[in-house]
Amino acid sequence: MSDTFKLSLGNLLQVLAPPLIWFLHLTTVYAAEALICIGPAGAAATMMAWTIALATVAALTALLLTAWTLHRDNARHPQSLGSSRFLRGVSHLLILLSLLGIAWTILPTVFLPTCA
């Protein structure tokens, strides 16, 4: 594999990671809800609460990690121009939007019963 390709892939992942994390978080909680609600009714609420908590912590950690790699790269290449720097800026804002998306996803769990 050529160097350009590795470089491109790294930058690409940096940009796509935040919304991807949001998507994985959403599908995880949705799938968990679907699976938990076909099981026994008693433990559903607790299982759901734990799943959401775990998924959310994992998602936030992953977002933090992405943010950290961005800062690291910015620090390493302070005067770099062109596509990579531009994409890092894009990635920053995507982290913000994804955070908002994740917050909105878990917001309803405060109000709604698990399987109804």
Binding site: W104, L107, P108, F111, L112, P113
Partner: peptide
């Protein structure tokens, strides 16, 4: 969103 969820509840 909160309003909608509240009505659902």
């Amino acid at each position: 969103l909160v309003y909608g969820v509240w009505v659902m509840r």
